[in-house]
């Protein structure tokens, strides 16, 4: 049977580039935000990362906060985290 020409059903994508945030020059004095998605393992993961960073010299303020796993973080949380020098996000399930 002869081939037929058919449309590709997935189309193109349009992905907005999201470059990595600048790396911290040093941990000393850095204010670090911690955001978890309220699922069981996320806070544990963040606590362990925080402990590792403290061992490596992190000694600044740490802000721990949580967001609902079913939606993007609301502006109130984002505004809070914008005051940080770095933010660590844990998404778990």
């Amino acid at each position: 049977m002869e081939d037929i020409e058919v449309f590709v059903p997935v189309g193109e994508t349009r992905v907005v580039g999201r470059p990595l945030a600048p790396r911290l020059a040093q941990l000393d004095g850095a204010r670090i935000g911690w955001l978890d998605n309220m699922k069981a393992n996320a806070p544990e993961l963040l606590r362990n990362i925080a402990a590792a960073l403290i061992k490596r010299g992190a000694n600044g303020e740490m802000l721990f906060t949580s967001k609902n796993a079913t939606a993007a973080a609301p502006e109130s949380i984002l505004a809070h985290l914008r005051n940080c020098d770095a933010v660590v996000l844990a998404i778990s399930d």
Binding site: M1, I4, E5, V6, F7
Partner: peptide, 12 residues
């Protein structure tokens, strides 16, 4: 047709 492929209808 902008984004297409040619396929055998028997095995499409």
């Amino acid at each position: 047709m902008s984004n297409t492929v040619s396929l055998d209808p028997e095995t499409l």
